[in-house]
Design a protein around this nucleic acid. Structure first.
Lengths: 224, 224
DNA sequence: TAGATTGTTAATCGATTAACAATC
DNA sequence: TAGATTGTTAATCGATTAACAATC
């Protein structure tokens, strides 16, 4: 099935399928059924087939999916069939983790430049790059042509950085700062919130009564 | 409304409301309406009220919500009304970013111990902690009593680390490794996948045709 | 061919949205 | 009281699941 709007959860899972397929390729496996994808991804076979159906037909009934063939297709869908340059803003600990992240390469994501506003840092080496002045991001990206950017700066600086990235031609922002970014409608933002993740885990980690009416009363969240 | 199972998206948003409320408190604001929460969180007022309704009644019609009161309630719901110790495994770049993450404190999350398996690293200082042997995680956590753990190790080591964390009494795992963790049913896992985030952004960053039938053909993902 | 597995449809499930009576 | 805003219900929307005819 084609022509319908693709659900975001489907796109998210596509990246997981791609990871599983790349692992299979490295193991020398040529074909995989949706059932086998389920084993390795934790995503149901039905869900997998449904997800792919938004983009076309990729498998052979009775056989399964060609590993290299499906890799090529998913890469094309996600625009990862060519190297994707990514701008990184924030040369702190998180930035260091990102420039050294080993898994980007297999997905053809490459951090092409690093920016900061700290004059002590600008000009210094950072991984294989040199830290550049965030004020020059538009100028630098005129040469790179990146569409993706990562914000790894403190929350108070994030909006300003987002504005500069948008001006530099970035249309997709991965935001690690715990703050709401306001961007033009053509720009997509995805937030990674460690606090959110840990808060959800914390909720489940202990099962107890919730509070009610502004005080401590009842209001059991799990029937307590 | 109480007694119903709480949707995960609701729990995720709770952390966002908490962040907004804490910011308001720091700004000296005493009361906030759902409409004002919407302004600062990007989440609709209706959604906010619906989310809270899973846990009880927290506002005053015609007035709004007491900032400190609602903070206290959400903290209690998420079990963040007391300090939550967290175990961190992996003393690499990402681990360094996490121990130095400044936003944990306001949410009463505290990284209480750091582990690694690299004998060169064990015993060394790491932020305000000393890196411990991952083999001793059960022993160490017997004293700490943490329920939350963060896996910041390479994918190939993640399952082994998860097994050790579960054995040490951890019931909530935040996993940064791009791999499927298999854990007992009482253990909750949340995955942070940078590849997934960037892949979704990459999809949207360029709007082009998808491939079909194992080759390059058509199958427009946006009606192309 | 017989067996396996796909792609798709229809049914189910769950979350979001909008509207409004109740309440301060 | 009149105005504002809540908590909740019902309607809408969208995603997941299951089943199966089509296909290799």
């Amino acid at each position: 099935m084609t022509g319908t709007r693709v659900p975001i959860p489907t796109l998210e899972r596509l990246a997981t399928y791609l990871r599983v397929l790349i692992e299979a390729r490295e193991a020398g496996i040529e074909t995989l059924s949706s059932q086998e994808i389920e084993q390795h991804s934790g995503i149901s076979a039905a869900q997998f087939r449904k997800d792919l159906s938004y983009f076309g037909e990729f498998g052979k009934p009775g056989v399964g999916y060609s590993v290299p063939g499906l890799i090529a297709c998913i890469e094309r869908i996600l625009h990862l069939d060519r190297e994707q340059p990514v701008l990184l803003v924030g040369a702190g600990n998180l930035g260091a983790a990102l420039v050294n992240y080993p898994n980007f390469k297999a997905h053809r994501l490459r951090i092409a430049a690093v920016f900061d506003n700290n004059y002590v840092k600008i000009g210094r080496p950072f991984g294989e790059l040199v830290i550049e002045d965030i004020a020059r991001v538009k100028e630098v990206n005129a040469a790179i042509g990146a569409r993706l950017g990562i914000i790894a700066v403190p929350a108070y600086a994030a909006q300003e950085v987002a504005d500069l990235l948008v001006e530099a031609g970035i249309t997709g922002i991965l935001n690690f700062a715990p703050t709401l970014l306001r961007v033009p409608p053509h720009v997509h933002v995805r937030n990674v919130s460690l606090l959110q993740e840990l808060a959800v885990l914390s909720y489940h980690a202990v099962e107890e009564a919730a509070c009610s009416n502004g005080l401590l009363a009842r209001g059991g969240d799990d029937g307590i």
